[in-house]
């Protein structure tokens, strides 16, 4: 694959990164919108830390780190959801538990791998790397992206209704527990899909920042979802371009672009409405 795209996307490795970046840039806010709606903005961060433990475990065992990350992240997401709803632990404490457990586990496993003489370079997994995207990744990310878009198309009304008031949603007969678990699993899958480009430590930002920008200007749930998705894609494309030009870690540049968009939107909104940031 080498498409006639202009610089900085003229090279094949950049085009692979671009396609994966666009899919991830769209899917992270799609899932993130519902996390923000349910006051679970930090969910992505907690699961990202768990995915890091999975990556380190894969490196130690010489298994593809993406698959071990996927297993650990999905299991962790379901465990967080279970703790949050049925356990006696409150939502943010449940997240904190996994947050620190994941990063500590990852550190221990990575150091063990280093002691065993395995060459460990965890930085690309933590902050993303353009050069590590392979054609195989493209298929995996594409499949994940299609799953997420399909899930959102079918479930967005139910998720929004649960986000407004989960007890009313239960009375309406919605399968609240199953739909919450589905969202948790999709969060984990999105994080793993985004690992190559954005990295496990920054993916949560791409889930939340575009939503933060979108909700400042949106006038409905549907608009929020669409604007967040567009903002995520724009952040990815500009961020990847900047990363190539200056040879930077793409995760950082993508998230910084997303943060810059939020800042600009906030200022513009403040100027036209005189309202404080985040006021709604």
């Amino acid at each position: 694959m080498n498409l006639p795209l202009p610089w900085p996307f003229d090279r094949e490795y950049m085009q692979l990164a671009l396609v994966v970046g666009i899919i991830v840039g769209a899917c992270a806010p799609l899932v993130g919108t519902f996390l923000v709606d349910k006051h679970l903005s930090l969910m992505g961060d907690g699961i990202g830390h768990l995915a890091f433990a999975g990556v380190a475990g894969g490196l130690l065992l010489s298994i593809s780190p993406i698959w071990t990350a996927l297993g650990v992240a999905v299991a962790g997401a379901l465990a967080v959801e279970w703790l949050r709803t049925r356990g006696r632990t409150s939502g943010d404490l449940a997240l904190a538990l996994f947050f620190y457990g994941g990063i500590a586990g990852g550190a221990v496993l990575a150091s063990r791998a280093a002691t065993d003489g395995i060459t460990v370079n965890v930085l690309p997994y933590l902050f993303g790397s353009i050069l590590t995207v392979t054609p195989g990744d493209l298929w995996m990310v594409g499949a994940i992206g299609a799953t997420i878009v399909a899930s959102v198309v079918f479930a967005h009304r139910a998720w929004f209704t649960i986000g407004l008031d989960d007890e009313s949603a239960r009375v309406m007969g919605l399968p609240v527990t199953a739909l919450n678990s589905l969202l948790a699993v999709l969060t984990a899958v999105t994080i793993v899909a985004a690992t190559r480009i954005v990295g496990v430590l920054l993916v949560a930002a791409l889930m939340v920042l575009p939503v933060a920008s979108a909700r400042i200007v949106a006038r409905s749930q549907r608009q929020t979802l669409l604007l967040a998705t567009v903002t995520g894609v724009i952040s990815s494309v500009i961020g990847l371009g900047i990363a190539r030009i200056w040879g930077l870690a793409p995760g950082g540049t993508i998230v910084l672009v997303s943060a810059a968009i939020f800042a600009v939107v906030s200022v513009l909104r403040g100027k036209t409405h005189g309202a404080p940031i985040g006021h709604h």
């Binding site: 986000g163 407004l164 008031d165």
Partner: peptide, 20 residues
């Protein structure tokens, strides 16, 4: 109990009731 975290129109709130 109605504390929307995202912009939500009155019509969107009411339409949610049809999910039953």
């Amino acid at each position: 109990r109605l504390t929307p975290e995202l912009p939500t129109t009155v019509r969107e709130v009411v339409a949610g009731g049809r999910l039953s």
